[in-house]
């Protein structure tokens, strides 16, 4: 494992992504300690352009957009993280069960996975979000996770079922090891890199999903996320008011977060799948 980490540190793509992400996490953790104001406090007139005091101007309600952005990035990262954990955990369990047990259970789980890959996840996301009245950002993240596991499940299943009949697994079986132990020591180490990559991708798509659903007005309540900032900008017609600072920074922040995650994923992919190295 340490060996893999050391190789990763040499990948410029992975490092670029990781440094960007860590930098952003650092800023959103530290800035609220320096500026202790409430991001929802109205401190200026509506749509004030950026100046030395309000770094990114004010929004429709006269709130400090820079502070809102910091909190927005924080929420979005949290949502992405939680959604990624949920999606990866569910996908891992279903993929492992399907690939390792095989037979009827495999057929059944594969069929379910395929069905949920085809049905667009954001449709389910909308239907669930509409049905739940008070959504915290955790609930939103959990819903996103629950609707986006099939990709991970499919990848894990493919890997597991090819590992299942390898010699080292058979030896472990003959030696009488329990199934959880075999999965833990003979299967998981081999698919760990895929799972980590899948998690990074799930996190990115979780952040995108949160932004999309918040744009639609189905985002979490009582919080600020990047999608919610854009939803406000759209609902209160910031583009018409020419207030680019109300939506462009939030839009770019999402792009930078997902970009850094994709970069990390690509860096890892090139290291763990040597076949696609150019």
């Amino acid at each position: 494992m340490n060996h893999s980490v050391r190789i990763l540190l040499k990948s410029p793509k992975f490092m670029l992504g990781a440094v960007l992400l860590l930098l952003m996490i650092g800023v959103v953790m530290i800035y609220p300690l320096i500026n202790r104001n409430d991001p929802l406090e109205m401190i200026a007139l509506a749509y004030q352009p950026p100046d030395s005091k309000l770094l990114l101007g004010s929004d429709n309600f006269g709130r400090d957009l820079f502070l809102e952005l910091i909190y927005g990035i924080r929420t979005s990262l949290q949502v992405g993280l939680i959604a990624g954990v949920f999606a990866t955990a569910i996908g891992l369990v279903i993929g492992l069960a399907s690939g390792y047990i095989g037979g009827m259970i495999d057929n059944l789980l594969t069929a379910v996975t395929n069905i949920f890959i085809v049905i667009p996840s954001f449709v389910i996301l909308i239907l669930i979000s509409v049905s739940i009245d008070s959504r915290s950002s955790f609930v939103t993240a959990a819903i996103i996770g629950i609707t986006s596991w099939p990709w991970t499940a499919r990848a894990v299943r493919a890997q597991t079922s090819s590992l299942r009949n390898r010699d080292h697994v058979n030896i472990a079986k003959i030696s009488g090891y329990s199934t959880p132990r075999i999965i833990m020591y003979e299967i998981l180490p081999y698919i760990a890199s895929y799972v980590v990559m899948a998690f990074v991708l799930q996190m990115a798509s979780g952040i995108l999903a949160e932004a999309s659903i918040s744009m639609l007005g189905l985002g979490p309540y009582n919080t600020i996320s990047l999608g919610i900032i854009m939803n406000w900008a759209l609902v209160f017609e910031a583009p018409v008011a020419g207030a680019w600072w109300a939506f462009i920074p939030a839009a770019l922040s999402i792009a930078v977060i997902t970009f850094s995650l994709y970069m990390m994923n690509t860096g890892m992919d090139e290291i763990f799948n040597p076949k696609i190295r150019s």
């Binding site: 990115a204 995108l208 932004a211 999309s212 744009m215 854009m230 900008a233 759209l234 583009p239 018409v240 020419g242 680019w244 939506f247 462009i248 839009a251 770019l252 999402i254 792009a255 930078v256 997902t258 970009f259 995650l261 994709y262 970069m263 690509t266």
Partner: peptide, 21 residues
Amino acid sequence: LFVNSIPFFTLAIIMLYAFAL
């Protein structure tokens, strides 16, 4: 890779701002 990381609506907003507004 960068364009792909920009969500659809983000790019839409940027284009709206640049080319329409």
